[in-house]
């Protein structure tokens, strides 16, 4: 029996803000539950306001959970009581915009090494002075001499490779990919997707892939969850979501995607 790597159950998050003295509430995540098995690519799709970014923030301990629970490797890492110790380094994230996710004042080496300084426990002794930096920069398709340069000397695709190397330096079990190719050109997107796939098999990674790009999700994900206004409206295998969608919102989403081949088939 394959134990789930990440279990999210009954997750809720509400943001409240005041506008002209009136209190507004935004129920960003409504009772969302899903589980990710080790080694799989789990996709979360949705449009703006669907709550997918909030879920990523909750998973990364950047926001606190209102109710519900997140367990990772059998250990509760977030619930409403807080005060859980978060397994920094075991869950890593790659963000959308590689222009802003790397500190312009740091060298590539400093950027990739940064997560190592804040590890705790066994990981600290194991990885503390990691020599993996060189191996990783090569694994993501860059060269050792790139390590002493700064982000502005690289293209968008190359910066995203650096961000991926930084995420992998702590040997994470789960990598959250938050729209990792949305800011890239088509041909560069293809390179990064290929890289993500080869890294997954090389390092035995599990991915949570968050995206609005249905084409990429269809190509990359084993199972897909569809979010609409904070609710998980459908959760199924890749096959079922794209060939036999059941929820009306999923159907609408899929029919809205301007695919060049849908057009051609109809001709």
């Amino acid at each position: 029996m394959n134990q789930d790597l990440l279990v999210v159950s009954g997750l809720n998050k509400t943001f409240s803000f005041k506008n002209k003295g009136v209190k507004h509430e935004n129920h960003a995540v409504k009772d969302v539950s899903f589980a990710i098995k080790p080694g799989e690519v789990f996709g979360l799709v949705g449009e703006s306001g669907s709550g997918k970014s909030t879920i990523a923030n909750l998973l990364m301990n950047l926001e606190s959970v209102d109710s519900g629970e997140i367990t990772f490797n059998g250990v509760t890492i977030a619930d409403s009581k807080a005060q859980n110790s978060f397994p920094y380094g075991d869950i890593q994230v790659v963000f959308q915009d590689p222009r802003s996710s790397l500190d312009p004042r740091m060298t590539i080496r400093q950027i990739i090494e940064e997560p190592l300084r804040f590890l705790s426990g066994a990981k600290k002794t194991e990885l503390g002075n990691s020599s993996d930096v060189v191996r990783l920069i090569q694994a993501v398709g860059l060269r050792e001499e790139h390590l002493d340069r700064r982000p502005h000397q690289f293209s968008g695709g190359q910066r995203q490779r650096v961000a991926i190397a930084r995420a992998l330096i702590t040997r994470p079990k789960l990598v959250v990919l938050d729209e990792p190719t949305s800011a890239l050109d088509i041909s560069v997107q293809a390179q990064v997707i290929n890289l993500l796939k080869s890294l997954q098999s090389e390092f035995g990674l599990t991915y949570l892939f968050i995206s609005h790009n249905m084409g990429v999700v269809k190509y990359l994900c084993d199972r897909v969850g569809v979010l609409n206004q904070g609710e998980l409206v459908e959760l199924a295998s890749n096959e079922d979501i794209f060939n036999r969608p059941t929820h009306p919102y999923t159907k609408k989403l899929l029919s809205s995607v301007p695919s060049m081949f849908k057009e051609m088939e109809s001709q």
Binding site: S187, A190, I193, N194, G215, Y219, L220
Partner: peptide
């Protein structure tokens, strides 16, 4: 290079 039509499992063509 579009993932939309590529078969899952195959790698995408790159330039």
């Amino acid at each position: 290079s579009l993932p939309d039509i590529a078969a899952r499992g195959s790698s995408l063509e790159t330039i």
